[in-house]
Simulated scan of single mutants.
Amino acid sequence: MSAQMPPLLQDAGVPFDLFIQSLTEQLDKAQAAMAIKARLGKLPLTFAVKEVSLDLRAFVQLLDEDVYVRPAGPGESEASSIRLQLTTITKPMIEENAVDFSAEDPKFSLREALGDQINEDERRSLERIGVRTVQQLNELKKQAGTDVIARLSRMPVSRLQQALMRAAAPRVTRVENAADGRDQGRVHLSAPGLRPGLLPLVRAAGVAVPVVAVEEDGVVLAPLATQLGCEAEVDFGDGQVARVELREGRIGQWSAP
């Protein structure tokens, strides 16, 4: 490699994902150039790249959980053989198979919701198994259970249970002011710990807060104007009690038994 390159790239090569992105980016440029040439020159026929096959001799190593590849130089016979085949894919196929990167509300991100319950390495371990949001973590808990998540993410069961408990705490997702003839506002409370057929008992400022509707994994409250902004006690039954401020974006905390 060139001596002008950073020492890390000279020794370790380039990240594998960056290598793939560079290949596809140059193919995209070639395709765009051919499209311009065909349109401006009004060519009835031109060529296109259908598939690209590459056989590489390279060294592969893992650095900080990233895979690096370094092409073999002259006389380096111990390099691995890597065979790559690039083919075409349409936009609908990309959207169907790609990860959904729709932004989660930062107030309820995995980092914000779990706080110091998990460290950065553990958060990345969850991301490796596809868990990037609190909603995904709660859904996976319902479908697979704590033991499966702990085994796949290689997290200690005790720490994972604490993180799951924190993720299941109630959260205020939206607050609506009194309108449309209503004399009371509405508080949308996300409650992953809500059990089917059992509504939580909610109290704020010493007065009960009515539950007026049930949503997916949550409820809608109709607090008095004097209760908005107050800390509410949410009793899910069986000793599960949480406290959350009736203000948009607030994340609740479980009360000590």
Rank of each mutant, 00 (worst) to 15 (best):
S109W: 01
P15R: 08
V214G: 01
E104C: 11
P6W: 00
F101E: 09
Q10M: 07
A167V: 07
D11W: 03
E65W: 14
R70P: 04
V234A: 12
G185F: 05
E51G: 08
P257I: 07
A35Y: 03
L189K: 01
R132H: 03
L246F: 04
A191V: 15
S102N: 09
P74H: 09
A58E: 15
L43M: 04
T88V: 14
A98N: 11
R151F: 08
R39I: 10
K42R: 09
I118M: 03
V14Q: 09
P92C: 03
G252A: 03
R70D: 06
M34F: 04
E51F: 08
P257Y: 14
Q240L: 05
Q10R: 06
R151N: 14
G237C: 09
K37F: 07
D183H: 08
R203E: 13
N177F: 12
D180H: 09
T173H: 04
V244A: 02
L56M: 10
L201Q: 15
L228R: 10
A33T: 12
G13D: 11
P74S: 10
K50M: 11
I89L: 05
Q143G: 01
E127P: 01
V244S: 06
I82G: 12
L201V: 02
S81C: 01
I251G: 05
P106H: 06
G41R: 05
E112N: 13
K142E: 14
L18D: 12
K142F: 03
V187I: 11
R159Y: 02
V69S: 02
Q10D: 07
E216R: 11
K91I: 14
A30I: 03
Q184Y: 14
E112S: 11
L62Y: 05
G229A: 15
T173I: 15
A225E: 13
L18T: 02
D121H: 09
A98E: 06
L63E: 13
I82F: 10
E139R: 13
A225V: 11
P192T: 03
G239T: 00
I36P: 00
A232E: 02
G197T: 04
M1Y: 04
P196F: 11
E231C: 03
F59L: 00
L152F: 02
L246V: 05
P170T: 03
V241F: 10
D147Y: 08
L224T: 02
L221K: 08
L164N: 13
I36M: 13
V234C: 00
E95W: 04
L27N: 05
S255T: 06
R182Q: 12
R186S: 06
S22G: 13
L43C: 13
